[in-house]
Design a protein around this nucleic acid. Structure first.
Lengths: 168, 168
DNA sequence: ATAAACTTTCAATAATTTTTGAAAGTTCTA
DNA sequence: TAGAACTTTCAAAAATTATTGAAAGTTTAT
């Protein structure tokens, strides 16, 4: 199998996975292409390889940069901008998790905070059920936070990794 | 604040969060409504409360049941079916993760397997870069698996929880 | 066997999200 | 300061995904 084909297959697969995780297909594809590339690529390189418009590349590249998955790079004597992906996969995953935590956990926390402050009025039994749910949700979110801590440690703490293993 | 309003706000919020995680808004809303409800609800109850069509309730309810987030329940002397949510939030999260793992991690594994078997042809340096990426991805996925093991332990092993805390 | 009560299906429609591409904006060179 | 090289923006179009609702299917009671 030719390298080019392997790359393209990777780009496609990554694209559809991203898609099912709520990440725009093009964004995931651009990311995959940069990951698979030995060297920095220009907007035009990307446009041509994945056959998407300039605007699309521009907008999604910006998002990838925001997420810290991609960085701009200048080539000596070239006016164009080039882009490379951060190749540390673990770091990449961390950035993604971080980003989603920010975007999606926060609204729940805000809601829980609000509902905890307000005294809720209704039939005793029903209110109790509801409040119990709120408490459980909070615990759950705390546990998620804990898990992301562990994730950080797993990344680069060999000792921690071993310990987890022996406890499994 | 009236219980009914609190419930509806919860339903709305859960709905939009689900939405950003690639879960249909209605599905998340139905789930939230059942979670917040003291007792089992019928299709009609759900239709009226969140104002969605019968077909929508039916289809999404089926999906919730597939995901093990909801169960059917019969009421004595009633012909209709009623539904309740599994209220164990931690178990719920597990089911969701499980489901997504099945659906979305598998394609990556399949791709990696395929690309590992095929000998890839191209410039030495570029091929090496690509192969390195594939190996890293595999490690990454292994680590994800490890993480879900840890989640299981966090869920119900108090000792483990404590230990993690002291190590943080 | 009939009909009422209820559930499921799915083609059509609606809503949402993503992508395009051309125009506007910026930066650099001479 | 002009103009070439490049980047950004965003309204409109396309693609995708979710929802409706009425008809078909099923189950239960008599």
């Amino acid at each position: 199998m030719k390298l080019q084909d392997a790359k393209m297959e990777f780009v496609q697969t990554w694209g559809s996975i991203g898609s099912s995780w709520g990440i725009p297909r093009s964004m995931a594809q651009i990311h995959a292409l940069l990951l698979a590339s030995n060297e920095a690529l220009s907007t035009e390189d990307v446009m041509e390889t994945i056959k998407i418009s300039r605007g699309n590349v521009n907008i999604n590249m910006r998002e990838l940069i925001n997420w810290n998955l991609v960085a701009k790079q200048n080539k000596l004597g070239e006016r164009k901008e080039f882009f490379t992906a951060n190749t540390d996969i673990m770091a990449m995953a961390q950035n993604i998790v971080q980003e989603r935590k920010k975007r999606e956990l926060q609204p729940v926390l805000d809601l829980l905070e609000k509902l905890k402050t307000d005294k809720i009025q209704g039939k005793k039994e029903e209110v109790e059920h509801f409040n119990k749910l709120m408490v459980e949700l909070e615990d759950f979110i705390k546990q998620l936070d804990q898990l992301s801590e562990i994730w950080l440690k797993l990344k680069d703490n060999f000792f921690f990794k071993k310990m987890i293993k022996t406890m499994s």
